[in-house]
Design a protein around this nucleic acid. Sequence first.
DNA 1: AAGAGGTAATTGCATATGCAATTAGATCGC
DNA 2: GCGATCTAATTGCATATGCAATTACCTCTT
Lengths: 249, 249
Amino acid sequence: MNQTQLAAVKLDGAGPIYDQIRRAIRDLVLNGSWPPGTSVPPEHALMEQLGASRMTVHRALVQLAREGLITRRRRSGTIVASPPASHAMLDILSIPQEVERLGQRYEHEVLSREDGRPSAELAMRFGLKRGERVAHLVTLHRADGKPHVLEERVIHLAAVPAAADEDFRETPPGDWLLSNSLWSQAEHAISAVPAEPDDARLLAIEAGEACLLIERRTWNQDAPITAVRLLYPGTRHRFVGRFGPYGQV
Amino acid sequence: MNQTQLAAVKLDGAGPIYDQIRRAIRDLVLNGSWPPGTSVPPEHALMEQLGASRMTVHRALVQLAREGLITRRRRSGTIVASPPASHAMLDILSIPQEVERLGQRYEHEVLSREDGRPSAELAMRFGLKRGERVAHLVTLHRADGKPHVLEERVIHLAAVPAAADEDFRETPPGDWLLSNSLWSQAEHAISAVPAEPDDARLLAIEAGEACLLIERRTWNQDAPITAVRLLYPGTRHRFVGRFGPYGQV
DNA sequence: AAGAGGTAATTGCATATGCAATTAGATCGC
DNA sequence: GCGATCTAATTGCATATGCAATTACCTCTT
């Protein structure tokens, strides 16, 4: 919680001062130098440290608070926020949550796992470099005992070394990664595909049946973390989102 | 473009002044009193009209600009922005754009149209009230001559009376609605379904082939505008989105 | 030890002031 | 007219100042 040795805020001289401060602190948060719970120096301290006026520092902090990276309270001060678990998009990041929100019992089973350098076929399918060590996992998620989604995932071990010693029995890989790694960008692709015979058998559906395929890749500051293919029996699933023309107005 | 008789900004006395100003202007924009292109009074004018300091007015306007509702330029002033065509999600609102972004030639054809009270079956499928008058359209969109997506749509004529006199030959219904109606909320559902025989024939694919189904309903302030089912041959399409845990960081 | 009350740290908000940057529109010179 | 130049309107940014609101923490009383 406390700053024993807090990495310093460094300005880069590009653009308005308030924005330099904002970006500097944002980067410290995003790259993990200031993990969630870290207390941010009070406005006075930053003001002296940076040689800016309080209002300028304030402006940067207010904006960061609006963006959700920090939490501010009078008298208590400012701390780095935990990534919002309630973010609309994030819902689909946690399969246990997704299942439980449907009021069903969740289970998962790791069907296979291999660590090492990817085969040519695997590298191709997930857009990997051959040289890099990855964990390759296939996991089946069940809702009330029935197959819910088939997950095939690679984890970049260079980015998440701890994954090598984790067996994912307690927590499925997606959720484990959410709490054991940092990510700053994710890319989704959604498409419909017919079920391959092997996949169909695991999902207990007919081969060729329409399935929803979600492919997601996740990075932290350009370093790839993980890539996953989620195959949902299409007839049983819909993804719903709500928005307005200017965002969530 | 100009304010012949601009509806006035009215504060409600609730909360900080800068936020009252922000909400007041936001509401004028969202409810259509200040349509896109309207020029917003300069900071000086608002300052006098509202009895607030320039910095306070400034703060409200800066925030609205960051939210994308207004556009500001030095000397030229501030105008109400057009709803952002570049919004990631919005891309899929315009099929012509979607096709042209792929570098293909766009065409569309209205295959059928019926205006009147919906049949029981139709009301059921789109969640309509039986009493309400709607236009019911089936449109096929083509890319480079090949079927791209099959659109089935209902338009609530009470909300968009002008739709009754439009034949949608020039502009397909989705795009026409974008420029001829206001909307504040949309809901998407994405799922995978096998192609029905009729639909498969129109899309020139095999019956039962996996398709991506996007169902979208659109409202303006709780009043339904339109509902649409877009059926994409799944193997040919992917929808891609990108985001970070704190939004578009 | 427990509760009451006071103090001060910290953020939130508003104002006033001044200057910089941009550029639409006016003016000038030819 | 037409291009060059000037002027001033408008937004962008930073600072200094002052007060309000919240509340962690200290002190005092019993």
